[in-house]
Simulated assay, not measured.
Amino acid sequence: MNDPLLPFLGRPVEVEVTGPFFIAGLMVDLGPDVTVVYTGEQFFYIPLLHIHAVQPYKPRDDSAMDGGPELPHENVADPISFRKMLMHAKGQFIEMNVTGRDSIHGCVTAIMNDYVEFYSPVFGTIYVLIEHIKFIVPHTGPTAPYGLKTVSYPVHPARLDLSRTFRQQLQKSVGRMVVMDLGHNPDKIGMLETADDHWAELVRSDGSRIKLNLRHVKSFARPPGPQEQ
Rank of each mutant, 00 (worst) to 15 (best):
M1T: 10
V17I: 12
F21D: 09
L26Y: 00
V28M: 01
L30Y: 00
G31D: 05
P32S: 10
V34E: 02
V34G: 00
V36C: 07
G40I: 02
Q42Y: 04
P47D: 01
H50M: 03
P56C: 06
K58C: 12
R60P: 15
D61H: 14
S63A: 14
A64S: 14
D66Q: 14
E74I: 13
E74H: 12
R83Q: 09
M85E: 07
V98C: 09
T99M: 05
H105I: 15
T109H: 04
T109A: 13
I111D: 04
M112P: 12
V116D: 00
V116M: 07
F118C: 04
V122C: 09
F123T: 08
Y127P: 05
Y127V: 13
I130D: 04
I130N: 02
E131Y: 07
H139R: 07
G141H: 11
P145D: 07
V151F: 15
Y153E: 11
P154I: 09
P157Q: 08
A158F: 04
D161N: 13
D161I: 10
S163D: 08
R164G: 14
F166S: 06
Q168N: 09
Q169S: 09
V174Q: 05
V178M: 00
D181W: 01
N185T: 07
P186I: 13
I189W: 04
M191L: 15
T194F: 03
A195D: 01
A200V: 03
E201N: 15
S205P: 10
D206L: 10
R209M: 15
I210T: 14
K218S: 15
R222P: 07
P223L: 12
P226M: 06
E228F: 06
